[in-house]
Design a protein around this nucleic acid. Sequence first.
DNA 1: TCAACAGTGTGACGTATATCGCACCCGTGT
DNA 2: ACACGGGTGCGATATACGTCACACTGTTGA
Lengths: 227, 227
Amino acid sequence: MDETNEVLRKAPLFEALDEEAAAALRASVSEVRLGRGQTLFSEGDEGDRLYVVLSGKVKLTRSAVDGRENLLAVLGPSEMFGELSLFDPRPRTASAVAVTDTVLAGLGHDDLRPFIVSQPHVSLQLLKALAARLRRTNDVMSDLVFTDVPGRVAKQLLELADKFGKEGEDGLHVHHDLTQEELAQLVGASRETVNKALAEFALRGWLRIEAKAVVLLDVERMRRRAR
Amino acid sequence: MDETNEVLRKAPLFEALDEEAAAALRASVSEVRLGRGQTLFSEGDEGDRLYVVLSGKVKLTRSAVDGRENLLAVLGPSEMFGELSLFDPRPRTASAVAVTDTVLAGLGHDDLRPFIVSQPHVSLQLLKALAARLRRTNDVMSDLVFTDVPGRVAKQLLELADKFGKEGEDGLHVHHDLTQEELAQLVGASRETVNKALAEFALRGWLRIEAKAVVLLDVERMRRRAR
DNA sequence: TCAACAGTGTGACGTATATCGCACCCGTGT
DNA sequence: ACACGGGTGCGATATACGTCACACTGTTGA
């Protein structure tokens, strides 16, 4: 379907391919549908596929021995995940779970490898994508050390706004589809503390809280609070 | 010099090259010497070179607005750094400072690019290296969220032991060359808390503290404390 | 229509860790 | 030989945040 192609085209992997190669690769794509809460793969699984989100949202999580969890990322349309095991073949180090009903494009590593070897652009594009992600995770690490919980919440909301935000009459609507529990796991804090931070922001008129969403009313002040 | 070649050969970048290509690349290497505390480059600099440590140790640091610092890594012989700007050309996001007197091999990006494009092995090797590092930083992030300071110290000492440890009569000598302040920045904690954690470990007979080094006496217990 | 339950809001309390303060130690240079 | 500065050891205090407890809300489904 056209919609699918449109979304795929924007994925970093496909951007680097010429039209012919992209068509060839699309032929080996298999579609996966997940309902909210369904898990695609789990930590420790063997993995030989990577995925591109076509619609919906997926969270990548790691869990500690005692069951506590930690979100590495929430991924939306055109974003790619599960590719680490392609370059460095080891069991998955995170689980992938659908946050909303989701459609994914799955690609076997064996289908992909020829394109990587034959088209130098592709490797360069992938290297660039990984380098950017490495920078990003380093940022997150610094934040965990230097920034307090309200600051991390503010920063995270601004990032979610970049990804999922829609400008509306009354502010910037960020329909992140996350429970406060999940948001807390994403910033590395407890559900309660995150709730209090949100309440504080709302009290100051910087945002409005909605079900699995927030409406940012004063982005500038949120930015200042985040650093 | 032979010594230099020996160390370079082990670097992930050179491992993937055949003998001829490696020799060609070595020709464009420039050597850099740094004294303890000297900085090679700083956050925000434009960077178009990557480096391989030939001897000594280098720390990669990021600093917050208020001057507090955060160590991303301590790198020893054969380790590579500064390559992110090669794939994703942006200003440096960390500073590089010599922890001891250090000799580096510097390589201009322009010298490197042809090898990457022409030899598919090289890109794959680099992708693998980046993927591994991404996994590692994800681990560190989880630790920051789930593990207390003593646990992070234990884990970090074990990692330093893997890199720099030498088995001796009386235990595993880890000459890390870091002040406790730097060790603290590496695990994301204050100097004092790290000091107390070390003192506690020493009291229990798990390790002995020496100047810019520790001697691990009970690796097994340290491991258990780390998780 | 009412249970049942997942998600949210908020206070009371405990604790790990940062911060502050100061004493000590040891190598370096004058 | 001495002072000096960087590094270390360690107690006292402050605080951000986790944990616990419970009440409230809205949605689902029998």
